[in-house]
Design a protein around this nucleic acid. Structure first.
Lengths: 223, 223
DNA sequence: AATTTATTTTAGGCATAACTAAATTATATA
DNA sequence: TATATAATTTAGTTATGCCTAAAATAAATT
């Protein structure tokens, strides 16, 4: 059995690996809010269990076994988030923290039952893909909202899930995955976005927009 | 925040206290499968937190605060057992172990949602009473099955929950809480019970019968 | 009162996981 | 290429938490 800390390291390595191949000790340490020396220690431990490969000064990579564990934890997390939200009515800004604790503890049996009850879903309440039980991650096509230009319409695909206040803010505009909106105006000099959601106007700051990813983007209005 | 071990000690002290007032160090240690010295250590720790009262060589008692914690954990456990069984379809012989892990981790919010969804239940799948959120434990009237005599009919009130194999065995006879049965014969010299459940006969060994508690006991057939 | 039993204290072990400080290695710059 | 800077690793420390064996002490029993 793995410790909770070990599982958290594996999950983090997976996430960081997603965006840029090899994961340096420093980046990993920063992500987990520990000192680099601590990360080195855990990396050595995980390496001795053949969950990561690592050569000094070259960064870590998950082995197949390590990736399987990481995906299992992520699957737990995302299924739990969806289950908590859909079946238990926990608001979407609260599911992350709860899932963070439960993910290390639930059995495969309970996971399978939740999966079935939810109808084998492919995305959690924030739009993040749920790996299937074989570790296959559904592809989600999306671009950052900050890439949008005036007049473009689109649908929310995914939002960052780790900031409850941000989620409450987005919720107040109904900016959930699946919600369509259109860009009315992008203020110059990296300013905020004015958008139209179901006839309602809303102003979304750029820092907030960075946490929103969209798809089904329609081409710019050309008069 | 309390550690999981501390919560387990409090829960154990509560259960042992139920059956006989003060709880000795030795009994507690045996119950938790640790050495007496370990129990003494934890007792000191719990005492420093005002969760138990204790004077050397005199056994432990929960304080009001300690009792509140114990009942909260027990409430978590039993609500989880029922939720896992009813809402997620986990078989009754599997819910105990799963709840044992989850009970230390779920939030009050999730607990409240489960409680509501289950309709504010008062007993878990094994018939054990679920304390309410104020720590009030519903009374369950019952006597040991081993007190029954020939010809008496009754209803299963509660069974021990910690032995999965026993639960599967009872399940094979439909001996769930709420099930009615009648004693056909009690074999002499502390022998097994032959009972009738909905027209089916079953033989229940005495060791098994010790784990079954019944109520609604009808008087003996007097011809 | 002597002996047995139970409890407590003492002293120490082990596992986990973090940290600091110093040494090492890699990378960037002059 | 030499040197400065940055990143990583090593080594040793600290803290938590729970456990144990052995010795000391108290309580119960004969």
């Amino acid at each position: 059995m793995l410790t909770q800390a070990a599982e958290d390291y594996l999950k983090s390595i997976y996430k960081l690996q997603e965006k840029g191949g090899k994961v340096s000790t420093g980046i990993l340490a920063e992500f987990l809010d520990v000192k680099p020396a601590s990360a080195t220690g855990m990396i050595k431990k995980l390496k001795s269990m053949n969950l990561v490969s690592h050569q000094r000064y070259q960064g870590v990579t998950l082995t197949d076994a390590g990736k399987a564990v990481a995906l299992e934890i992520i699957r737990h997390h995302r299924l739990l988030e969806l289950y908590l939200n859909k079946a238990l009515g926990v608001p979407w800004d609260g599911v992350h923290d709860e899932a963070e604790k439960l993910e290390h503890v639930i059995s495969e049996e309970v996971e399978a039952r939740m999966d079935e009850i939810l109808g084998y879903p492919t995305a959690d309440p924030h739009g993040s893909p749920i790996p299937d039980k074989n570790g296959v991650v559904p592809e989600i096509q999306s671009i950052p909202m900050t890439d949008l230009q005036n007049g473009q319409s689109c649908v929310v695909a995914e939002v960052s899930d780790n900031d409850a206040a941000l989620l409450r803010h987005l919720g107040s505009f109904n900016l959930y995955p699946g919600t369509a909106f259109k860009v009315i105006e992008v203020a110059p000099f990296d300013g905020p976005f004015t958008i139209d959601i179901a006839g309602q106007q809303a102003v979304i700051g750029r820092e907030v927009a960075k946490n929103i990813f969209v798809n089904n983007v329609e081409p710019i209005d050309t008069v």
